[in-house]
Write a protein that binds this DNA or RNA. Structure first.
Length: 347
DNA sequence: ACCCAGGTGCTGC
DNA sequence: GCAGCACATGGG
């Protein structure tokens, strides 16, 4: 049993942040969480301003401490936030206690391949189904905390954030690349993965081949090479690669740009007319690009709403958040999670 | 019926 | 380089 402060680690913020798809609130007690990584499982309990992790000191030191990113000082980051940026300040305040987890590499690769064109509850279901089919079954001996929260009937499982194939006594681990590869190209049918089936199968096979090379690059913190290898895998483009870099490789400067980030940029950080960046864009460009800029401006003038392509959004993100060097990925998570919270609140 | 979801691959300029 | 389209599946 290990204890920490909720200001430093808030399970609620992390559970709803969209970086982890296998973290669940228990049905009996909203302050007890189950989080899974690879074949491991951790029980987390929130009590007022304290948070408890149920594991041995040794397991904490050798695995969960780094996984939970507990050796990083998060206080230094918030002091650097531009106080004039009201959206970011609000996002940080709402996300206090959010941490960037150091998750399992292969689990992140597969999970974020699944994530494309899916909503988070649907991603969770797919990941669960995958674990249930290919993952190793684990049963633990009863622990004090497990006993306390164990009498989980399996009703109401459709509620988001509740696990359907695990309880406090047993769970499925995340599949190994070999188990997926061994099942063949058709082994993933019936899991609602759609066109991602092929991506996951091919990438599992390829992961086995390049694992050594990939882990070496991560180990050396050579994120350019890491990203190159990741993007050579089927189904991994720039956005998914950035998620893997951020959530599994320790690259705190990776800044995934997805639909939510794009709409935040369009709404909260619109380009001012005649600002320097825009002039730079129009001035020395060639004809082809000039056309694009004009097109965008037309849209802005007629609809009043600026639309950004992913490439333009990445550019804008650099302009706005490039100043947060060393932790721009954390900034991304603050605004991403805040945006999720806002849009959920509306529904 | 239509639109969108933590996008990517492929084609054609 | 960048636009346009197809790709499954589920939910508003």
């Amino acid at each position: 049993m290990v204890k920490t402060d909720v200001l430093l680690f808030d399970p609620d913020r992390i559970c709803d942040s969209g970086q982890i798809f296998r973290m669940y609130r228990t049905e009996e007690d909203a302050s007890v969480f189950l989080m899974y990584s690879g074949d491991r499982r951790l029980i987390v309990k929130k009590e007022e301003s304290d948070v408890f992790f149920e594991c041995s000191d040794e397991e904490y030191e050798t695995y969960w401490k780094h996984y939970l990113d507990m050796d990083r000082d998060y206080e230094v980051f918030h002091k650097q936030i531009d106080p004039k940026d009201r959206f970011l300040v609000s996002a940080y305040e709402a996300g206090r206690g959010l941490r960037i987890l150091n998750q399992d590499l292969f689990e992140m690769i597969v999970s974020f391949i699944i994530s494309q064109q899916k909503q988070i509850p649907s991603i969770r279901k797919c990941v669960e189904a995958l674990c249930e089919r290919f993952g190793e079954r684990h049963v633990t001996k009863r622990t004090k905390m497990a006993n306390q929260y164990e009498q989980g009937s399996h009703e109401g499982k459709e509620r988001t954030g509740i696990c359907t194939n695990a309880d406090e006594k047993s769970w499925y681990g995340f599949p190994s690349p070999r188990s997926i590869a061994a099942a063949g190209p058709d082994g993933l049918k019936g899991l609602s993965l759609g066109y991602r089936e092929r991506y996951i199968y091919e990438t599992s096979c390829r992961f086995i081949e390049v694992e050594r090379e990939l882990r070496d690059a991560v180990e050396k913190r050579d994120f350019v090479t890491t990203k190159k290898i990741l993007m050579s895998m089927t189904g991994i483009g720039e956005k998914v690669a950035d998620c893997i870099l951020l959530f599994a490789c320790g690259d705190l400067d990776a800044f995934p740009v997805d639909t939510h980030i794009i709409s935040i940029l369009e709404r909260e950080y619109p380009a001012k007319k005649n600002c320097k960046a825009e002039e730079k864009c129009i001035g020395p460009q060639e004809n082809g690009k000039k056309k694009n800029v004009r097109k965008k401006e037309m849209l802005t003038e007629t609809t009043g709403v600026e639309k950004l392509t992913p490439a333009q959004a990445r550019e804008r993100a650099r302009e706005v958040f490039g100043r947060y060097k060393g932790f721009s990925g954390l900034v991304q998570q603050w605004i991403f999670a805040y945006e999720l919270m806002l849009s959920y609140g509306k529904k």
